[in-house]
Design a binder for these strands. Structure first.
Length: 386
DNA sequence: AATTCGGGGGA
DNA sequence: TCCCCAGAATT
C-alpha cells in the first residue's frame, strides 16, 4: 500500500493502479456517444465544450442535434452565430457556444482547418483550458496528457487522502501532479476515460461503492474512513432572492409579441426576452436599468406604454403566471403580467428601444421560435398558451 | 483568490 | 431543499 500516489508511490504501485483501472473499465466503462469516434478531435471538442459544468445526461441530446447540424469544423465555421446559439438554447453557459464557434473559425484561419495536437496551440483556442487540452490530446491523439475534472478531482482526492479544500491552489497543483504521474503511457486516452468513469459510477459524491472499487486497496480515504469527508469543499453561500415582473404585450392586429434584445455583455448576452422589470432584491439580469423607477407591479401598466412609445396600451396588473428560476447565485421569482396594444398604427410597428438594450420589436409566433431566449422566458411563453 | 457565466437532475 | 455537474475567463 502507498501513502499517496504523488509522493511515496513506486512504479509497481502506479502500474498496479493503472491495470486495475483499465481492467475495471473493460467491462464496466460507460458507453457515451462522443466515444463512438474518439479519435475525431472535432467531436471531442464539441462534447467537452458542452460538458463544462454540465451533466452527461443533459448533454447527450444536445450533442446529437448539434453534430447533425454541424458535422464538421468547416460547417460550424461557416454557420451564422444565431444558428449556433439556437442549437445551444437551454444548455446554459452560452459563452461556450460562441467560443466553440470562434474556435472553428480560428482552426480554419490559423491551422488550415485541422485541429492542432500541440498543447500550446490548443490552449490558444477560445474556451480551451488545461482540462480540455488534455482531453483532446489524450482522447483524440493518444498523447500521455493528464486531465483533472469533477470526477477525477473527487477520485484522486480520496485516493491520495487530500484533506485540504480541493479548489485551493496547492491542492490543485498536487492533484494535477498526481494525474500526471498516474496517466498510463501506453493508452492514456482510455485510461483517462476509465478514471472518469470510475469516479462517475463507483467513487460517487455520496455513498461511494468502495466494495466494488478496483483500487480500494490503494485508497487513503477508504483506509482511513474518510470517503464521506473527502473531497473538502468550501461551504457555498445561500442564493440571494429577487423579484421580477415580465409583461406579455400582444399587438392586437397580428397577435405578435413585444420582445427585447439584451445587451452584448453579461448574462444571456444578445438573447431575446420579454420586457421584464426589476421589483426587489437581486437583479442578476440588470433589469433595474429598464425603468428602475418602476419597482412595483402597480406602476407597470402606466410605464409600459410610455417606455416603448406606444399608444393604447392596456396591462392587467394581476399576475396569473409565475416562474421560479435560479441563475448563478440568485433565486428569482418572476411574475407575469398581460397586456395588449389595441390599435394598429405606425407607432406600434416600431417600439422605442430602452437605453442599454440592443433592439425592441414585435415578433410573430413563428419568428419567436427561431430566436434564442432564456429558459425562464421560454417557460413563460409555454405556460401562456398561444 | 473570487466571481461570473445556466440549467437540470438526483438524493 | 441542497448539492453537484468532463471548467474557463475575467476581475
Amino acid at each position: 500500500m502507498i501513502e499517496a500516489v504523488d509522493r511515496n508511490s513506486n512504479q509497481a504501485d502506479l502500474n498496479a493502479i493503472r491495470e486495475a483501472v483499465l481492467g475495471w473499465h473493460a467491462h464496466s466503462g460507460r458507453n457515451l456517444p462522443w466515444r463512438d469516434d474518439r479519435h475525431d478531435p472535432y467531436r471531442v471538442l464539441v462534447s467537452e465544450m458542452m460538458l463544462v459544468q454540465t451533466t452527461v445526461s443533459a448533454v447527450i441530446p444536445y450533442y446529437h442535434k448539434f453534430l447533425a447540424r454541424f458535422p464538421t469544423v468547416e460547417s460550424l465555421a461557416g454557420a451564422p452565430e444565431p444558428d449556433v446559439l439556437k442549437h445551444w438554447e437551454g444548455l446554459g453557459y452560452y459563452r461556450r457556444a460562441r467560443q466553440l464557434h470562434q474556435m472553428a473559425r480560428e482552426v480554419t484561419d490559423r491551422f488550415g482547418g485541422t485541429i492542432p495536437a500541440d498543447e500550446a496551440d490548443l490552449l490558444s483556442l477560445p474556451g480551451v483550458g488545461r482540462y480540455i487540452a488534455g482531453a483532446v490530446r489524450s482522447f483524440a491523439f493518444d498523447q500521455p496528457a493528464p486531465i483533472l475534472e469533477a470526477n477525477t478531482i473527487r477520485l484522486l482526492a480520496r485516493l491520495t487522502g487530500t484533506k485540504e479544500e480541493v479548489t485551493s491552489g496547492s491542492a490543485q497543483k498536487r492533484l494535477w501532479a498526481t494525474a500526471e504521474s498516474l496517466v498510463s503511457p501506453d493508452d492514456p486516452g482510455t485510461f483517462n476515460q476509465a478514471l472518469m468513469d470510475l469516479g462517475a459510477e463507483v467513487c460517487t459524491p455520496r455513498n461511494p461503492d468502495c466494495s466494488h472499487c478496483p483500487i480500494a486497496d490503494f485508497c487513503v480515504a477508504n483506509r482511513e474512513g474518510l470517503t464521506e469527508s473527502i473531497p473538502v469543499r468550501l461551504a457555498r453561500k445561500p442564493p440571494t432572492p429577487g423579484e421580477e415582473a415580465a409583461v406579455v404585450l400582444t399587438r392586437a392586429s397580428d397577435r405578435s409579441i413585444l420582445l427585447l434584445e439584451r445587451p452584448e455583455t453579461g448574462l444571456w448576452s444578445s438573447f431575446w426576452e420579454l420586457p421584464t422589470f426589476w421589483i426587489s432584491g437581486a437583479d442578476p439580469a440588470r433589469r433595474a436599468s429598464l425603468g428602475a423607477s418602476i419597482a412595483t407591479p402597480e406602476k407597470i401598466p402606466q410605464a409600459v406604454g410610455h417606455l416603448f412609445g406606444l399608444d393604447s396600451v392596456d396591462v392587467e396588473p394581476a399576475p396569473r403566471v409565475t416562474v421560479n428560476y435560479v441563475v448563478t447565485r440568485y433565486k428569482m421569482f418572476l411574475q407575469v403580467m398581460f397586456g395588449s396594444v389595441r390599435e394598429t398604427g405606425r407607432r406600434h410597428d416600431t417600439p422605442n428601444c430602452p437605453d442599454g438594450w440592443k433592439s425592441a420589436r414585435f415578433v410573430s409566433h413563428d419568428d419567436m421560435k427561431k430566436l434564442t431566449m432564456p429558459s425562464a422566458h421560454r417557460k413563460v411563453l409555454r405556460k401562456v398558451d398561444f
